[in-house]
């Protein structure tokens, strides 16, 4: 295989990870605020269905995305109400919603199975960026509008987290809500807001599947992606950059599995469908182990600090715990 071809395969693989990027960033935002939205699997699936149906009915892809984002936010609202206001177990609520929404998507989406629908406009290259050596052809030639929006989302989220007052507050309420409250922040309202934003992004992830990267709708169309998104967020150390990298890695693993499947035909196809998930977990475990920290301790202090921030993997201290105020 010549390098040009390999590049195209890689570029396509990276592009196809875009829905996962949206989902991972959404979940990262929510969890940083201290709320676990465990319904990702169901949210993505139901929103894929809703997005497809809305786009088909209105004959407008963008309306599909809007509808999916709204439904995603709505599911997140249920999570937020149960977790923040009723102070119930976030795990239980999320899990039940994950199952419920998956089944709902199968039931409601039944009339729309395997019919053609609108899709996102075709791919285009970005004028100047595509000429950058190596990175240009890899990232800026094979994408469509959604792929590039994904890049922007990653950068914007990172910037928001670490360079703005709002992002600092977001991290604060996930770490020590009582202290954030004492500094005058409305912890409850902010947690609601970030849970809804995260849910909307997961909704967009769903629509990105059904309207773009896995166009159409079928029974359990996006099965497995929600769970892998949750895993990537954890192993990504709640850092948007690392989470996005994880998502892209998964995309590459999946397309490699595709290539492998066509070269070794007598292995059952299920092996290649499942392999990326298994490999991904392995890769994530390897890249977030203790040994990285141990390696770091040999570096000079200032280098260590900046690196430590990137590989720091402690969950937000108040993750999953409701904020009690007396």
């Amino acid at each position: 295989m010549e390098s040009g071809q390999l590049f195209i395969i890689l570029a396509t693989a990276i592009a196809s990870a875009t829905p996962l990027v949206f989902a991972c960033i959404g979940e990262t935002i929510t969890e940083r605020a201290g709320v676990i939205n465990l319904s990702a699997e169901g949210t993505i699936m139901l929103c894929a269905m809703v997005g497809f149906v809305a786009a088909k009915t209105a004959d407008n892809v963008w309306l599909g995305f809007v509808a999916a984002a709204l439904v995603g936010a709505l599911i997140a609202l249920v999570v937020a109400y149960g977790a923040i206001t009723l102070k119930q177990s976030q795990i239980a609520i999320g899990f039940v919603l994950a199952l419920l929404c998956s089944d709902l998507s199968a039931y409601l989406g039944n009339p729309y199975v395997r019919i053609p629908g609108p899709t996102v406009p075709p791919r285009f290259a970005i004028p100047l960026l595509q000429d950058m050596p190596f990175i240009g052809p890899l990232l800026f030639r094979e994408g469509d509008i959604l792929v590039y929006a994904g890049y922007a989302l990653i950068g914007a989220t990172w910037f928001y987290f670490y360079r703005t007052r709002g992002g600092l507050t977001l991290r604060a309420i996930g770490e020590q809500p009582a202290a954030a409250f004492a500094r005058g922040h409305n912890v409850i309202a902010l947690r609601y807001a970030y849970t809804l934003i995260g849910g909307a992004l997961m909704g967009i992830a769903g629509a990105a599947f059904s309207l773009d990267f896995k166009a159409g709708w079928s029974y359990r169309h996006t099965a497995g992606y929600g769970w892998i998104a949750l895993a990537i967020v954890i192993f990504g150390g709640w850092n948007p950059l690392r989470a996005a990298l994880g998502a892209y890695l998964f995309g590459v693993l999946q397309s490699l599995a595709g290539v492998a499947q066509s070269t070794v035909p007598n292995v059952p196809t299920q092996v290649f469908t499942v392999a990326p998930f298994v490999l991904m977990i392995l890769a994530l475990v390897l890249t977030s182990g203790d040994w990285l920290d141990r390696l770091l301790s040999y570096l000079p202090v200032n280098v260590r600090r900046s690196l430590a921030r990137i590989i720091h993997t402690a969950p937000p201290a108040a993750l999953g715990r409701p904020f009690e105020q007396d």
């Binding site: 007052r165 600092l168 507050t169 991290r171 604060a172 770490e175 500094r183 402690a314």
Partner: peptide, 17 residues
């Protein structure tokens, strides 16, 4: 101390000021 242990001192200083 009602602060944010995982954040740095300067981030604590800026948070909520």
């Amino acid at each position: 101390p009602l602060d944010f242990p995982p954040l740095t001192a300067i981030e604590n200083f800026m948070a909520g000021s």
